[in-house]
């Protein structure tokens, strides 16, 4: 399952849909990314720009690679775009595997690649105006450890 959407989603409902009807799965891992606003640097919203056609293709490729590499039973990725407010979920990655290590590794691999290779761009909206979020070198490092 891959969903790229500007609509809100319920993380629990999504997980329940994903993990039903897989009696062979012994482990399910879910990561949910949230919009955060820090007390010393509050934001009013996070605005995500997306190139949907490219996102669909790149995420499909990353998912296929992750399933093969970690022998996952299934993997699902949902990523939102548009204007999101603090506390809202931005994205969710879910993996199903026979055992926990593969499910954890698969989820981490998907997250590390999504951070740097999926065409989304975040802009923080605060009282003073909006500002593009800068890419972090540490995200490239996290991705590169899988190479």
């Amino acid at each position: 399952m891959i969903i790229i959407s500007d609509a809100p989603f319920d993380p629990g409902t999504l997980l329940n849909q994903f993990q039903t009807n897989h009696p062979e799965a012994g482990a399910a891992v879910t990561f949910t990314g949230m919009v955060r606003s820090l007390p010393d640097r509050p934001i009013t919203a996070l605005i995500l720009e997306c190139y949907p056609d490219l996102a669909q293709n790149e995420i499909a490729a990353i998912r296929t690679t992750a399933i093969a590499r970690f022998d996952l039973i299934d993997a699902a990725i949902l990523h939102r775009y548009g204007r999101l407010v603090p506390d809202e979920p931005i994205m969710q990655v879910m993996t199903l595997a026979p055992h926990r290590q593969a499910a954890f590794d698969g989820a981490q691999y998907l997250m590390d690649y999504l951070k740097t290779d999926a065409p989304f761009w975040k802009q923080e909206e605060a009282a003073a105006g909006t500002e593009w979020v800068e890419a972090k070198a540490s995200d490239d490092t996290a991705r590169d450890r899988w190479r």
Binding site: G33, L48, C50, Y51, D53, L54, Q56, N57, E58, H79, I90, M91, M111, L114, K115, T116, D117, A118, P119, F120, W121, K122, W132, V133, E134, A135, D139
Partner: peptide, 28 residues
């Protein structure tokens, strides 16, 4: 990207209908 796939810079432009120049991505 060429036709909605990220590709190496030395990819030929043959058949390219849509090319995107992508700043560093900050999703996830």
């Amino acid at each position: 990207s060429k036709n909605a796939r990220i590709v190496p810079w030395n990819t030929p432009i043959d058949g390219a209908e849509e090319v995107a120049i992508l700043p560093p991505m900050t999703g996830g």
